[in-house]
Amino acid sequence: MKKLNFADKFFPVSTIVLLIGVFWYLLAVPMNSEKVSRQFKDLPASEHILKCWSLKKPKLPTPHQIFSEIVNTTFYKKISSKRSLVYHGWITLQATLAGFFLGTLLGILLALGIVHNKAMNLSVMPWVIASQTIPILAIAPMIIVVMNSVGVTGLLPKAIISMYLSFFPVVVGMVKGLRSPDQIQLDQMKTWSASSNQILWHLRFPSSLPFLFASLKVGVAASLVGAIVGELPSGAIAGLGARMLAGTYYGQTIMIWSALFSAAFLAAFLVFTIDFLQKIILKKMAIVR
């Protein structure tokens, strides 16, 4: 199949975006209609609809309201201001990256243990899977409270929650990746009487890279979710999660949605960054052409 370039993708993607936009504006009318009727009596239909799209605290804000809020709080506020999305985004991004780093490290270490140690191979995976069946919303407050009680606050507890979510795809992907060399390649290493460290370094690790990058993309998005969830129960006053929480307290739906969209953009940016690194590194290593 031909590789798709930007122009090939532009039309289908923008069509879907347009359809969602149209659906969104249509939906905003019945969602906000009741509130408009309460505030303004006897408007003509066309003005009624326009009001539905421009309420200050709508049930469902429209895309242009959300984007003007994002633009406003991103570019027209000082980045040190508590009302700046850049400020909140940066707080969340720090916890995300720290958690992502820790999670990736933990994931790779566990995978190495599982592949090289028979006892770990038989015992660790069920626990890894069990860890992911516990809802993060249940465990996040406990981590925050426990760490708070020993005096650890701020970035680290959030990073731990991010790690908890992001190590999982890395373990699963890396175990598969480290085991991806075929029997001939392993036999060949044996005929050279290579040590298991040499097999790891020369064969298993390079073979696992495509798997690792696929996992990292899932992991970084999970990290961001973890960081945001970590901000919710702690009564944090900074971060995208805190922004969403504040929005719900004060009924500021536009604020919630703009934080939500910022988080989505941030996640997309992180995933694309890893995708970009993957393309460069794998191409350089001639694993893909």
């Binding site: 001939i184 390649q185 036999d187 060949q188 064969l203 390079p206 290593m285 001639a286």
Partner: peptide, 11 residues
């Protein structure tokens, strides 16, 4: 030992 497949490392 030469195997059935060349088994060269692509990287």
């Amino acid at each position: 030992y030469v195997f059935q497949a060349a088994g060269l490392y692509p990287w």
